[in-house]
Amino acid sequence: MLAPGNTIGILGGGQLGRMLAAAAARLGYKVHIYAPEADSVAAELSEAHTRASWDDASALRAFAEQCAVVTYEWENVPIAALKGLGDVALYPSIRALEVAQDRLNEKDFVTNLGGRAAPYMAVDTRDDLDRAMTLIGTPGILKTRREGYDGKGQWRINYDHEAEGISLGGQPMIYEGLVRFDCEFSVILARGQDGQTVFWDSAENVHQDGILAKSIVPASPLAQAQVAEARALAQQVAAGLSYVGVAAFEFFATDAGPVFNEMAPRVHNSGHWTIEGAATSQFENHIRAICGLPLGDTQLLAKGVEMHNLIGAEAADTATLTADPANHLHLYGKGEARPGRKMGHVTRLTQ
């Protein structure tokens, strides 16, 4: 068990790191942020900030030497950077990132455990793409195997001829058959160093232009009926990875049952509602898990909760956002409100 007063290192300097830093401070820990960017919103709430690139081996080692434990708020931290941290405790493990950073590895890992996913094939060449469209069919979605989020790095192909203008660019990709679904929902768990696992209520998620717009708890009856099966798979994945911390698993609710979409080895946007809506937030339980503390109660504190993301200019009208006392407003302290940029979120509880 890591005693209060120790320093937690966080790799990545965005809003997830900011909310983790706030949770760590409430539990008496200090936070040291490692991020390449100068304007880290996480560093604003942290004891220290190392600004250095991911390939700066000496900076990574010096950072790790000042931390009792290290975690990450961004799943695309290079594996080489993690290996350069030395002997400091790292949660979640490198293995979790090796699986989650590559969509093909992720799908293979989950389906080998018996999980249900959309039909998929690896695509490295144009011939591979033609073969995948023939065997799986269209419509489908072509995705980069690495990186890409909020709809980036994805191309929907409704008919074979629509693939003609897509350049693979020499990067490994994956083609997935389109899933017909009624709604999307997430399963978020926290797993401690002793294997103790807790779940929050599953949120139904609504996306716009590939970006999460809102999360609603409780989810629809159809999604709720599939949560138990989805949780069982999520728990298998976490155990198979010897996972420590919070992880999110996204599912499609279909007539055939829950279909796995993807996992995030970190705290997740669809769990932001837990700050006000649950007895213990996803951020606090992540800190508890990586520090070896008992996990907190995850019960819902209201009849229902809705979390709305504030995208781009939606965060500008703070007067309106704060006028309703039922709104729990979280602004991330970012500068320019670009289209598609997550600037904050609002949570509302219903009694």
Results as ranks from 00 to 15, higher is better:
132 A>D: 02
69 V>K: 14
211 I>R: 02
336 E>C: 03
339 P>A: 03
190 A>Q: 04
350 T>P: 00
212 L>S: 06
4 P>K: 04
140 G>V: 05
245 G>I: 06
34 Y>C: 10
323 A>E: 13
187 V>E: 01
169 G>V: 13
284 E>V: 12
272 H>D: 06
191 R>S: 05
28 G>S: 13
260 F>C: 04
99 V>T: 06
15 Q>R: 07
199 F>D: 05
318 T>K: 14
212 L>Q: 08
182 D>S: 12
168 L>A: 12
25 A>R: 15
148 G>H: 03
197 T>G: 04
203 A>Y: 06
30 K>E: 15
87 D>V: 12
244 V>M: 04
251 F>M: 02
328 H>P: 01
201 D>W: 05
93 S>H: 05
30 K>F: 14
65 E>Y: 03
301 L>I: 12
168 L>S: 12
194 D>F: 05
300 L>K: 11
29 Y>K: 11
127 D>N: 10
84 G>F: 00
311 I>A: 06
157 I>M: 07
257 G>K: 01
351 Q>W: 10
11 L>Q: 07
130 D>R: 10
38 A>Q: 13
341 R>T: 08
2 L>W: 07
7 T>Y: 05
98 E>P: 07
324 D>V: 09
67 C>K: 10
183 C>F: 02
274 T>N: 09
314 E>F: 03
50 T>W: 09
184 E>I: 02
30 K>Q: 15
312 G>Q: 10
73 E>Y: 08
152 K>F: 04
17 G>A: 11
202 S>D: 02
117 A>T: 10
272 H>W: 06
276 E>F: 09
346 V>R: 07
26 R>L: 15
315 A>P: 04
6 N>L: 14
343 M>C: 11
186 S>I: 03
300 L>E: 09
10 I>D: 11
337 A>L: 03
346 V>A: 08
88 V>F: 13
132 A>V: 03
34 Y>M: 10
327 N>M: 03
